[in-house]
């Protein structure tokens, strides 16, 4: 249970970074922390104590495996996170070119 609570703590740290920080790069890091906390949570869901890695190797009987499906899903989720992070970083570089700052309180040309 305490492991799940640790995931929640990590999620809250990321959320704090996204909501409270003013530097664009720190916001991106906060978003990445959120993604990692969720991935960690999902992998933990499939874990069982004293479990083996779910690999079908030669001359081995299969017992006590951890659930392989969350690992595959988390791999997909990591790829998606990679795409989003790369996009955000390139947007951040362009924003720095246009505004000359990373401070979001100074990047306010839009009203909304």
């Amino acid at each position: 249970m305490s492991l799940y609570l640790l995931c929640l703590t990590l999620f809250c740290i990321g959320l704090y970074g996204v909501l409270r920080k003013r530097n664009i790069v720190k916001i991106i890091i906060g978003l990445a922390i959120i993604e990692y906390s969720i991935n960690l949570f999902f992998v933990l869901l499939g874990y069982r104590f004293h479990g083996r890695a779910p690999i079908d190797a030669q001359d081995q009987n299969i017992l006590n495996m951890v659930d392989p499906l969350p690992q595959a899903l988390v791999l997909t989720s990591i790829v998606i996170g990679l795409g989003v992070t790369a996009l955000l970083i390139s947007i951040a570089i362009r924003l720095y070119e246009k505004y000359g700052t990373f401070d979001i309180t100074k990047i306010r040309r839009l009203k909304g």
């Binding site: 990679l82 790369a86 970083i89 390139s90 570089i93 362009r94 720095y96 070119e97």
Partner: peptide, 15 residues
């Protein structure tokens, strides 16, 4: 991945 890295590097260089 290489293209992403190249794009970021070239973007940085252009700046």
């Amino acid at each position: 991945l290489l293209a992403i890295f190249l794009a970021l590097v070239i973007l940085e260089g252009a700046k």
